[in-house]
Amino acid sequence: MSTLGDRLRIARQKSGLRQTQVKERTNINNKTLSGYENNVSEPDMNTLTVLTELYGVSYEWLLTGEGEMTVNTTKKSSHLTEKDERDIAKRMAELREDLSTATGLLFEGEPMSEEAKESLLEAMEFGVRLAKKNNKKYTPKKYRENDEE
């Protein structure tokens, strides 16, 4: 079973990029990228989002090694629009407010630290983004003929 680091390296190599090119396009330090690929550290959800889009691979494959490795990047419908980004930002602001005003929010029986809340928000944002993208891929039957023309 391959690790996240192995899949990151495979995806980078399949996309034909060297680590220095990834650094130029994403501002991820070479040492940091090397750490990800060698399983020394793991990227956060925002970094994973950037890398999946740069490499043209699916989130599912990158995170689990299951499913199709590549995604069809020619489909415009899977890209997030400015409106989608605003919707995501609005939803994340609501979630952040809910977390900051929540009382009795516990993690393993202890009050959640600010770091834990931020990690939870990052994971939630990743989920919201993934759901938005996946929902854009589905076209109801009544609209399919119009898309093909």
Rank of each mutant, 00 (worst) to 15 (best):
A11S: 14
L17V: 04
Q13M: 12
R86V: 12
E37C: 05
K83N: 13
L130E: 12
E110V: 05
R129H: 05
V50K: 05
K132P: 00
E24L: 14
H79F: 12
T20L: 10
R12K: 09
L121R: 07
R86H: 10
K31H: 00
R86Y: 09
D98V: 06
K142Q: 10
R18D: 01
N39W: 00
G16E: 02
V50Q: 14
G16M: 04
N146I: 06
G127K: 14
M92H: 00
R144G: 00
W61N: 01
Y143Q: 14
D6Q: 15
N72M: 07
D44I: 02
T70G: 00
D6G: 04
R86F: 04
N146L: 12
L121T: 08
L121Y: 05
E122I: 03
G109L: 12
D98Q: 15
K132V: 07
E24S: 15
T64Y: 09
A11L: 02
V128P: 00
N46P: 04
K75Y: 13
T49M: 10
T81L: 05
V40C: 03
E37P: 01
S78H: 11
T3D: 02
K137E: 11
L33N: 09
G104T: 09
T3Q: 10
E110M: 09
F126E: 06
A131V: 09
E82T: 15
S100L: 11
T3G: 01
K136M: 06
Y36L: 01
E24M: 08
V57P: 05
E82A: 12
E68V: 05
Q13T: 15
G127T: 11
L99E: 05
G67L: 03
T74W: 04
Y36Q: 05
Q19L: 08
A11F: 07
T103N: 14
K136E: 04
N30V: 14
E94P: 01
F107C: 07
E94W: 02
V40D: 04
R129G: 02
T101F: 04
A89F: 07
M92K: 01
G56D: 06
E42K: 09
N72P: 07
G67I: 06
L62K: 03
P140A: 14
K141M: 12
N72E: 10
M69K: 01
R7G: 06
K83V: 11
F107W: 14
A116W: 03
S119D: 10
L95E: 15
